[in-house]
Amino acid sequence: MRASSWGLCATLFVASLAPSVVGCGSHSLPPMNVVGVDKSKASSKTINYLGGVPLRSGQLLVTESPDSTSFVFVFIPEKFYPFTHVAVISIEDGEPWVYDVTGEVKTFPLKKRLMDNVKGKMYRRRFYEYVAPNLHAEVYEPPEGADGEKLAAFVRQKYAEGVEFDSYFDPNDHSKLFCSELVSLAIAHAGGKPPGLDPSNPNPSVVEGMRWLGVPPGIALPAGKFIDEKRFVGAFGQFRTRTQAWAYFEAKRELFRRFTRDQRLGYMLILQSSGQVEVRPEIGDFVFGAARLFKGEEGLPPPGDPRIEAEVRKLADKMFGPFPASAGPSSPAQSTAAAPAQSATP
């Protein structure tokens, strides 16, 4: 079986949003809240963005798509990871720009296989334009050892070269790239150590779905592998607080935890005859209900605080029935891999 990888880029299906923003002319962007900042990351190399978020070249930007695709991607890796897409920040003439590679649906000719209808390229977009359509976004410093200027220069070079999007997610062929493959290469070029690949989910329904897409089950490189709370810089998006955002992620983690080998994607998702995937109403109610558990702006538990997990699990038990705390498709150590350190505050 050919090794392949899912970059979990958020724009593969027809419900994709970000490429549409670029390609469809006039539109209005939703308001974007700044819901977290670590001002200690400020330095002579940073600019103050939106009143104090210290941005600099080479920082990594992870985003969570607002559409149903994010509920597909979460089940592709063998472990849970938040976020659906990763990109790189470049400061040019004092302004923050975002470079990423992503796919979109082609127009003609039409192909029977879904992924044959997907093509893409690298994009360069203003930070606000890029981030605002997303549900949530967070900025992280580049990994230890990676030079931010070199990291940004790498993605600018790939943009200049006109690199195409790899709709079949092959991490071994760098002639085309997917989002996390691009960032991994950029980190390595800049002297850092990129995160390794993960196994993909052995759940039979996930394997079947990947086979349908033409992506053999094998390995995955989720966007969430690039985050580390120690490197957190700032958070933006549609939620009122970072705690709400991480309660949303915790709910998705709970969905993942319950996704044991005998479960199938259809228990949570609806595949329309068009090939479009949608989220079942009760699943959407659960994840956004979880965010709603944490109102206000004072005294909220920070991301990674066990109170978030406890409250979200309580909600899940109420809605879907009890589920043992120790159960899940992966070990306890794996299931908490993506939770940020508790020392951080939103």
Binding site: A15, L17, H27, S28, L29, P30, P66, D67, S68, S70, F71, A132, P133, Q238, I270, Q272, E278, V279, R280, P281, E282, I283, G284
Partner: peptide
């Protein structure tokens, strides 16, 4: 609760 379909909205919050 197979009552239909849902979609996660985008820029309409």
């Amino acid at each position: 609760a197979d009552v239909g379909t849902a979609i996660i909205a985008s820029a309409t919050f």
